[in-house]
Simulated assay, not measured.
Amino acid sequence: MEGAGVRIAVLRKLAGWTQQQLAARTFVSTSLVKKVEQGRTPPSPAFLAACAKAFGVDARELHGVRVADVVADFHSERADIPELREALHAFDDPQPSGRELTGPELRTALDGAEELRAAQRYAELARVLPQALHHLFVLVGDTSPGTADGERARAMLHDTYRLSASVAGRFGHPDLAAVASERHVAIAPETGDPLRQEVSAWHRSGQFLQAGHHASGARLLDRALTRIADRSDPRGLGVRAQLHLRAAVLAARGGDGDRADEHVRSARELVRAGADAAPYCNTDASELNVDVHWCAVPVERYDATEAVSRGARVTIVDPGRPERVARHHIDQARAWALHGDRDRALDALHSARRVSPHQVRAHPSVRETVRALLAGERRPSGGLKGFARWAGVSGL
């Protein structure tokens, strides 16, 4: 039953390091390294990123994630990634099918695309985006920068690039996600909406988060927050809240729990001041998302007692936000596993599965939590073994 802990141990030994030396390089305790390598404690994303950086590998390698597994686990249908890749590179030779679509028609199509993303129907979204890009390339070419029509067209292209980056990331194509991310960053200043530049900064910060470059991501968000500190309109408040929530995760994974909680408090104040809950596509400045982050902060710093305590004080239910709700249950499963209550951990995993099965089955930390639960039981229950088989944890 090979998990991240086994891979970390192998790479550590190949590097010729002791557990104490790896602990020093990743700024954690030796006992934590030992527990993770033995499979008794699920590794946090921050610890995995630190190990990946120390070993000089991609963090996904520590999970043993393969692109084919991501696609198969996340959705049974084929995602049109080749078509999306072609469309992203066809900005100077667009090939839209059918008649040219008008701006309002494309806006309606993009609103539908955002609904697919919110519902986690990523395979369908991947099929919609290529033609949206082709049509938008034509529309942008037909409109002048700086005009109202030109800025609206570029704003829609900004949305489409960000949705494309999300799809590419979901299906395990970081190179394609990087291309789309560079495009939305570049076009944001041409949309006539300064907030879109900060939305791009929020999206960019995810790259720093995944790579474990927490300080760089925090500086990026601090600059963004400074630039829009005087925005008190609902949309501006929403973007500011979204920036604070991402900053909270970066601070927590960087080891500054107090700073993380400060960012969560700031986000909550902005939400209660009237922030737009969804100021742009693929953003979430809702009270629910604030609660999810509030509960996640102590999990990131391995404070299981505080994590489950916070989880008991909130109710995370919203059919319209399955990704956020499932993520909360995944975090709570990690917390209960760290707390030593395997039954509550398994209950939380089942709750996540009911809300968003594809997300849960494809989530690497779910598999690590399951492995930790299995490692802690000499005779795993039928329920745990059944969940492990469903989640693709081998070696039972």
Rank of each mutant, 00 (worst) to 15 (best):
A109Q: 15
D111V: 12
L116P: 06
L116S: 09
A119E: 15
Y122S: 11
A123M: 10
L125K: 11
V128N: 04
V128L: 15
L129I: 14
L129V: 15
Q131Y: 01
A132E: 15
F137D: 08
V140A: 12
G141K: 09
S144L: 14
A148S: 15
D149Q: 13
G150T: 08
G150L: 04
A153Q: 06
L157P: 08
T160K: 01
T160S: 11
Y161P: 13
Y161L: 07
L163T: 02
S164T: 12
A165E: 13
A165P: 07
V167D: 02
A168D: 08
G169I: 08
F171I: 05
G172C: 07
P174Q: 12
D175V: 05
L176Q: 09
L176C: 04
A178R: 15
V179G: 01
A180T: 05
A180V: 04
A186H: 12
A186P: 01
I187W: 06
P189Y: 03
G192A: 04
Q197P: 00
S200P: 03
A201I: 06
W202A: 08
G206F: 10
A211M: 11
A211N: 11
H213G: 06
H214R: 12
A215Q: 14
A215I: 11
S216E: 15
G217R: 06
A218K: 08
A218E: 12
R219Y: 06
L220W: 03
R231L: 02
S232Q: 13
D233T: 03
R235W: 00
V239K: 01
A241N: 04
L243A: 07
H244F: 03
L245W: 02
R246N: 11
A247K: 02
A248E: 07
V249D: 11
L250H: 07
L250E: 06
A251W: 03
